[in-house]
Computed example of a mutant assay.
Amino acid sequence: MKKIILLLAICLTIFSCKNESKTVEPNAEDTKPKIAYASFGKEITDTDALTAERMMEHYKNLKAGDTVNSKVKGKIIEVCSKKGCWMTLDMDGENQVMVKFKDYGFFMPLNAEGDVVINGKAFVSETSVEELRHYAEDAGKTEDEIAAITDPKFEYGFEADGVLLKK
C-alpha cells in the first residue's frame, strides 16, 4: 500500500511540474503598425481624430465666438520662428487654421513640420490688424509685407491642449 501511495505522489509531482508553453496567435488589430509621435502638452492619442476635410465642415457651421471640442489631424504649414508659440495647419488646400496652445503651457519645436494631431477647442474669430502684423513679424516677414496688412481677417482658430507630432 505504501508503494502505491509513493508511486501516486511521484506521478502527481511529475505531472504538476510539467512546463507547458502556450502560443498566442496575433490578433489582426494588434498587428496594425503603430505610428511614432512626439507628444506636447496634455497626453492624447490619435484615435478618433477627424480628418482636416471633415473638420472644415464643422468650421463652416460655426459663427464668430462659437467653440467645439475636437481632435484633428493636419499638416503643419508654419511655426512661430521665435518660440514655437503658434503654428498654422493646412486644412483642405484652401483654408488654414491658426493653432495656439492653451495657457501658453507648451511650445512646438521651431523646425516642426509634417503631420500632427491636435486636441482642444476649435473656434472661428476675427483677428485684428495689430495681431496680424505681430504674427507676420514673428514669421520673419519684411517691413513691406507687414505694412501691407490693413484689414482684419476672419479666420479659423484652434486652442490646443495636446499635440502629437509625427516623427
Rank of each mutant, 00 (worst) to 15 (best):
Y37F: 10
V68T: 13
D48A: 11
K63S: 13
N111W: 08
Y37A: 03
N27Q: 12
P109Q: 04
D115M: 14
S70N: 10
P33C: 08
D46K: 04
N61K: 15
I35R: 07
V116Y: 04
Y104D: 14
V97R: 02
G65M: 04
K73S: 15
C85P: 06
A49H: 00
F40C: 00
E113Q: 07
A64R: 06
T31S: 08
F107E: 03
E29N: 08
T88Y: 10
G105P: 03
V79P: 02
F107P: 01
N27G: 13
A112F: 01
C80A: 05
M56E: 04
I76E: 01
I44G: 00
E78C: 11
K73Y: 10
T45M: 03
E94D: 14
E53K: 13
F40E: 01
M55N: 10
G120V: 06
I118F: 00
M91C: 11
G93F: 13
D66L: 04
C80R: 00
D66N: 07
C80Y: 04
D46H: 08
D90E: 07
A36K: 12
M98Y: 13
M55C: 15
Y104C: 10
K121C: 07
R54P: 11
V117L: 05
N61S: 14
Y37R: 04
G65E: 03
G114D: 09
G74E: 02
M91K: 09
F107W: 07
I77G: 11
T88I: 07
G120L: 05
P109R: 09
G65N: 06
V79Q: 02
C85M: 01
W86H: 05
Y59W: 03
K34P: 08
D48F: 12
F106P: 00
A28P: 06
D90G: 07
I77Q: 14
N95E: 12
N61L: 13
K42A: 12
L110W: 05
N27T: 15
L62E: 03
C80G: 06
K121W: 02
T51Y: 12
M91I: 14
I44Q: 01
D48Q: 09
K34S: 08
K75W: 10
R54W: 12
S81K: 13
H58L: 15
V68R: 08
V79K: 01
D30Q: 15
L89M: 11
G120E: 02
L50K: 07
R54V: 15
L50M: 12
I118N: 00
W86Y: 10
F107I: 05
K82P: 02
A64S: 11
S39Q: 14
V116N: 06
M108Y: 00
G65A: 06
K34G: 05
M55T: 13
K75S: 09
V97D: 04
Q96C: 10
L62C: 00
F40Y: 06
K34D: 11
T31G: 08
K102I: 05
N27H: 10
V72D: 06
N61F: 07
